[in-house]
């Protein structure tokens, strides 16, 4: 069982070594679905090189890098981060629409940036350190 941190949250998934996942687990954590033509998200499909498959399983770390996205893992191969690549992030900023996030306050209440649509927002960071 590995822990995978993605932009959508923290996921526990069974692996067959490395980040070799069953297609349904790969879909659950990445949003990409394995089809005969490759890994697909909505109408868009990316062929999967033969080396990235092992039986029915797919090497999600290798596929993620293949998409141009960052991957990090601990030495034990138990914890993985699947990040978002520079192209997608730069395009989002160039579009000028403020990237959405959901974060808790001290009481645990979740706040979504878009909850404040209709107001001017002064978004500022700070830290205790």
């Amino acid at each position: 069982m590995a822990t995978v941190l993605t932009d959508t949250g923290t996921h526990a998934v069974p692996t067959a070594g490395g980040l070799m996942l069953a297609p349904e687990d790969a879909e659950r954590i990445t949003g990409w679905t394995l089809k005969p033509e490759g890994m697909c998200r909505e109408e868009f499909c990316v062929p999967v090189p033969a080396g990235m498959k092992q039986g029915t399983h797919i090497d999600v770390a290798a596929f993620w890098r293949h998409l141009g996205n960052p991957v990090a893992s601990d030495r034990a191969g138990q914890t993985w981060v699947l990040g978002t690549g520079p192209g997608e992030r730069q395009s989002a900023l160039a579009g000028l629409q403020a990237p959405e996030f959901v974060l808790p306050d001290l009481a645990g209440k979740q706040h979504r940036l878009s909850d404040y649509r209709g107001q001017k927002v002064f978004l500022t960071t700070w830290a205790s350190w």
Binding site: R89, A92, L93, L96, Q97, A98, P99, F101, L113, S114, R117, G118, Q119, K120, V121, F122, L123, T124, T125, W126, A127
Partner: peptide
């Protein structure tokens, strides 16, 4: 990470339409 900030305090101004 989302906004490419590198220090604190940094800020972003966002208008009523959610535009930076």
């Amino acid at each position: 990470a989302l906004y490419g900030m590198v220090n604190v305090p940094q800020c972003v101004w966002i208008d009523e339409r959610g535009v930076i």
